[in-house]
Nucleic acid binder design. Structure first.
Lengths: 331, 331
DNA sequence: ATCGTTATCGGGAACGTTGCCGGAACTATA
DNA sequence: TATAGTTCCGGCAACGTTCCCGATAACGAT
């Protein structure tokens, strides 16, 4: 299986490797007869070219890399599936890495992908990435990167995002229209782009409804479950919110559990809206109203943009930001 | 970044590439002084060897492949994290692929990994894999494979599984001890190893309690949500089970929803036990009792076994099956 | 003085592939 | 008939690396 090389074919057919290569590549000038002979034999022995040799020669790998913070996050796995669906059609393979929210792992992943000559990258930043040098050098080395969801504060890049401002605005508005006024906002680390945008949407909705913004109700949370629990506990004990707007898949669950477990039972008096792609938000008790990002579609769009860049070769595709709408699913 | 080659170093230092290679590899006989000079310079220009050239030469890639049916499945992503954790320590990189329950995709993934000279494979079979030829050739080509969870019916392989028989037995016994007698068993396609083992556990528990096995209550379900819904509907309408023992992450959720949505409300009269690694089974309404597989640990064990094989080089590690215990989490 | 030994290094092949360059054989043109 | 052009093919270098084989110098022993 794939042990046959072009040399073997050349030897058994009594021709040179160049000729075999030409036949296989259907290139340049070659006698139709020899070409058929080569193709036939190659097929019969199940020849397939060695991608490593190709990579070494051509400085590319015919595969694209994905780096996400965590595969176990449903939002990210949906995005990956979107990317996968278009890459597979094009005969590209997709190499998936996790940064585990670690800056070091992210850098290591980028280097690995780069040294293995990935043709392009699609990624979402780790929660601890402040320094962007590894990405800058990757891009200037000619490896195009599409960022999605958690995008860096750079102008000269390609981005695929969802309308976080609007999503947060709609979520907050939903709570307000249910009569809530003390709406806690629990969200991801402040460095992330999504954090800022969602916070802005939350604040805008409050202001448009003449509700004062209470800084005590806004909490940034890392990725440890305990952190979420403590935050919830403190909020409920000391600031009596009447509702929660919780961002990120992970936090949504942790907070849901935290609120449920707290002395104050989760009842009709306390509402939660999550910003999440949880599969089973409708099965929770009570069902969780959510803002749902079009994850699969974001993956598709990111991949299609990347392939447009790769196929454009010379004439450069202009930097752009593709923004998709979110959906508020009231439950 | 990683554009510097050994030739560049040789040229600027006025020595041959062989010498540079020797210095870097700390091999054979080389003057301490030149060695230091090379190492110093290499470090200063941030040299790192080209892994593609290495792969071409040594016929291996210093990376291992993972193939799972679906990343979005929490069980699989936990296993991946387990593998990842040990591979990262050893400086190996992990390449993740999805078969999407498709035999063709699985074959394609195996070929891709093989031709890219993955040092080894850790995989769980797709739900539509009957022909094992692609795996046999991979193994006879010298690429060791560790199977986990969904393992093939082969003796001469390495496997990491959980005790599905016992898990199913305990789950069924749990329902029986709650007074249930008409226990429906909804499970994965019958080709899969896990399906057979769990069915056996289910049947054994019934027999040990002198409950007749009703074939009508045993249903195999594919991976389409609608299939699960229809199955549930038919079961409830025509066979009035008093409880369900549902296998696989996907089915657990689908059935949970199906039962909840059916005319007969999900109440204390109908119990469900799921065989799943759902993160939020405790938050469902009602909380879902589950059999939980030690997914992360299974990944670790699989990876450790693989590295043992890779490091053993010549003396062969005997084929073996590592079996881990499951945990019944009553909620 | 000659020879074997040791320490250190360079040359070159090889991994699999492609593409440039040159060359042989043939055809067509003047 | 000589020349130019065409068609087809083989040789060779190159991608980055390692490793085997030989080469050279220094040095001590005979």
């Amino acid at each position: 299986m794939s042990y046959i090389t072009i040399k073997d074919i050349a030897k058994t057919l009594g021709i040179s490797t160049s000729t075999v290569s030409r036949a296989l590549r259907d290139s340049y000038e070659i006698n139709e007869e020899t070409k058929q002979k080569v193709l036939e034999y190659a097929k019969s022995v199940n020849y397939s070219p060695n991608p490593i040799a190709l990579s070494l020669r051509e400085n590319k790998s015919h595969s694209i890399g994905i780096i996400v913070p965590e595969i176990a996050n449903n939002y990210f796995s949906e995005v990956i599936n979107g990317i996968d669906s278009v890459a597979y059609q094009r005969g590209y393979h997709v190499v998936i890495f996790q940064s585990h929210e670690s800056y070091e792992r992210e850098v290591s992943n980028v280097h690995h992908l780069l040294s293995r000559k990935a043709d392009g990258l699609i990624m979402s930043l780790s929660g601890n990435t402040n320094d962007l040098e590894h990405l800058q050098t990757a891009m200037s080395d000619g490896c195009p990167i599409i960022f999605f969801d958690r995008v860096p504060p750079l102008d000269d890049t390609y981005k695929v995002v969802s309308d976080n401002f609007e999503g947060a605005y709609k979520a907050t508005q939903h709570l307000i229209s249910k009569g809530k006024t003390k709406i806690a906002h629990i969200t991801s680390p402040p460095v992330l782009s999504i954090t800022k945008e969602r916070l802005a949407g939350y604040v805008a909705a409050l202001k448009d409804n003449n509700i004062a913004v209470d800084e005590n109700l806004i909490r940034y949370c890392g990725f440890e479950p305990k952190e979420a629990f403590n935050t919830i506990e403190d909020l409920i004990q000391n600031h009596q919110p009447d509702s929660f707007f919780v961002c990120s898949d992970r936090l949504a669950l942790n907070c849901f559990e935290g609120i449920k477990n707290s002395k104050h039972l989760l009842d009709s008096d306390i509402s939660i809206v999550g910003y999440t792609n949880l599969k089973n938000a409708n099965l929770l008790d009570p069902p969780l109203t959510t803002v749902r990002q079009p994850a699969f579609e974001m993956g598709q769009q990111a991949a299609e943009l990347l392939f447009r860049i790769l196929e454009a070769k010379h004439h450069k595709i202009p930097y752009q930001t593709i923004m998709l709408k979110n959906e508020l699913i009231v439950r």
